[in-house]
């Protein structure tokens, strides 16, 4: 498995492999919500451990440019952004193993390219329960209204499930947030109209919590403060549009049923 021996160190193929590994690793990190300084850090670590000199990288949230040895720059585009921390942890783990010499450079590349199949997920029902509990718990912590905790949980679970299912069916961004917000708003208002709850606002705030881009906003400010003037605003705009979609969806339901 160890191609480090028959792949001559410093040769063109070796440099190409290192570039590809760095691009893949940084793409996985950016796609899953890592901040930019960590991405550059990881690339530099990998290059150091692969023992190549003169690595130059330009990392933004929508694409990466990278060259080793001053020739053959490569580009990798980053199209989707989600939060999947297990992939980030996996990249970190592989990079650590590579640094300790436990896996060869070709095996490292193989693991990174197959990461979608290697990472395991929680079962879907468990995520649904988690979304329900998250909505209910946030409603109690922020609003302190115990009467509607159960209703918030159920509506939050429905909203999140709809969001995920729509995400699988339609590939248009922000429409699924909007639709879920409309459904959450309508359900919350109906609950209050039917006399099952006392405050639609409390229900809505809890129920939209699994969808709200609060972490993205904070991440955007973190990127800005570490001096990344391209990725910070880009992330911020994305978070603002997401919040817009949610807010307009709820406002629409308030107009119809409020």
């Amino acid at each position: 498995m160890d191609l480090r021996n028959n792949l001559e160190h410093g040769s063109k193929e070796y440099n190409k492999l290192v570039v590809n590994i760095c691009l893949l690793a940084s793409r996985i990190l950016i796609e899953n919500g890592s901040e930019m300084s960590r991405v550059t850090d990881t690339i530099n670590h990998i290059a150091k451990n692969a023992d190549v000199k003169d690595l130059r990288s330009y990392v933004t949230i929508t694409g990466i440019m990278l060259s080793v040895g001053g020739v053959d720059a490569q580009i990798m585009e980053v199209n989707k952004r989600a939060y999947d921390l297990r992939k980030i942890a996996a990249v970190n783990y592989y990079s650590r193993q590579f640094a300790e010499g436990k896996i060869s450079i070709t095996h490292f590349y193989y693991l990174l390219s197959k990461i979608d199949n290697l990472v395991t997920y929680f079962p879907f029902w468990m995520k649904m329960v988690a979304a329900a509990l998250l909505s209910g718990a946030i409603e109690i912590v922020f609003q302190g209204n115990f009467v509607v905790a159960l209703q918030t949980s159920i509506i939050g679970m429905l909203g999140w499930t709809l969001f995920v299912l729509l995400n699988k069916i339609i590939k248009v961004e922000f429409v699924n947030e909007f639709t879920s917000a409309v459904v959450i708003g309508v359900l919350a208002l109906l609950t209050v109209k039917l006399g099952l709850g006392n405050s639609a606002d409390d229900i809505i705030i809890g129920a939209v919590m699994p969808l709200v881009p609060g972490v993205q906003i904070t991440n955007a400010v973190r990127d800005l403060m570490s001096g990344n003037l391209i990725s910070g605003p880009a992330r911020g705009i994305e978070a603002i549009i997401g919040a817009c979609a949610l807010g307009f969806g709820v406002a629409l339901s308030l107009n119809w049923f409020g």
């Binding site: 705030i205 609060g214 972490v215 978070a239 807010g247």
Partner: peptide, 18 residues
């Protein structure tokens, strides 16, 4: 960060603008 993050307020901004 979940209990600290300003998600609820971000939602209020958009709702009140709309």
């Amino acid at each position: 960060l979940v209990p600290l993050v300003p998600g609820g307020q971000a939602y209020q901004v958009m709702k009140n603008i709309a």
